[in-house]
Design a protein around this nucleic acid. Structure first.
Lengths: 176, 176
DNA sequence: GCGCGATTTCAAATGAAATTGAAAAAATCT
DNA sequence: AGATTTTTTCAATTTCATTTGAAATCGCGC
């Protein structure tokens, strides 16, 4: 019996935290790892965010580092990135030296950010390419010209629909 | 004057095709390159699909290769992948040796495939992680426990909403 | 002000994923 | 059937984003 009993009389794992707490954290991290994979975001970001999310109180960088194997450099970069994103917020506890980090649980902000930065950017660029396609489309009446025109039209239709969807999506997110 | 005049009396570029045709193709490829980047798909796939999309008639592998600088290996692999995806279809012209490829312009099929393979898979995995989170959530009444419970609840809420959205999306795609 | 641990910075290492190239296989033409 | 060209396969290479680690910087206690 190397440790004091946990408040929940559960098993104590090597790092001194109750097994349940660790299991909880692992699930949270796994969740965000999967999500990050879908969105093409680096793993370290998912891990850092997950750790913050799974902790009821704000964590200092060294506390975070105690929970995962991650270089100090990665952590620092990751915290900066996530802070810039608005995914986590710096909490400065009065009588304390280092900054601490807590998740911003407003997930919609993250989603809106993603939509704007990635999806809308692609839609805008695509618009330009579509213009150029239309400008260079063959003007003839032959079936070959027609095929290409109809393809571009179809693409353009999809593009328009996607574009129209964005404000709706963002609106829905803002209400939630 | 090294070449015969084009049917459109336009400029003839080095590869013997009218400048407009080449410009059109370039725009199409650029469009799909951007889209591929958004979806995390390799560039070569976007290029191959773009070339097929920009051609009014089905192209043989060697014709495709004449239009971009791409190793024969990449092209072969890319064609196989895109065919498996249903993004392009093999067209076997009767009195002709090699298979030719045409785009499947039913873009919704691609979108549905993407939704099912990537998004739904993540939603299912996430469901499992959420279960585990809930099972390991602290049961106490303290504010710390409450914070975590509310976070998981919020996450769960988003998850449920996303999940509910999928059938709607797929339904909408099927009608289009 | 000095020293020490914690954090940040950034160039270099790593690793995952895409691309190539050479050899094998298939298909066509003579 | 043999020769030639096209296509496929797959190991090796290249590429590129992420991660690391060492040095610089910061912040606080002594």
């Amino acid at each position: 019996m190397p440790e004091a009993p946990s408040p929940m009389n559960g098993i104590i794992v090597p790092d001194g935290r109750p097994a349940e707490v660790v299991a909880f954290e692992r699930s949270v991290i796994a969740y965000f790892l999967d999500a990050a994979d879908l969105l093409g975001v680096p793993k370290s970001l998912a891990v850092i965010y997950g750790i913050c999310f799974a902790s009821s109180d704000p964590l200092s960088p060294s506390e975070i580092r105690a929970r995962v194997d991650l270089s100090a450099g990665s952590l620092s970069q990751g915290l900066r990135f996530l802070t810039g994103l608005g995914a986590i917020i710096e909490v400065s506890v009065p009588g304390e030296r280092a900054a601490r980090y807590a998740p911003d649980v407003e997930l919609r902000k993250l989603l809106i950010h993603y939509l704007e930065r990635r999806v809308e950017a692609q839609l805008d660029a695509g618009q330009v390419h579509l213009k150029s396609m239309k400008a260079n489309l063959p003007k003839g009446l032959g079936s070959k010209s027609k095929i290409l025109r109809s393809r571009v039209e179809s693409l353009s239709g999809w593009h328009g629909k996607s574009r129209a969807l964005m404000p709706l999506l963002k609106g829905a997110l803002k209400l939630s």
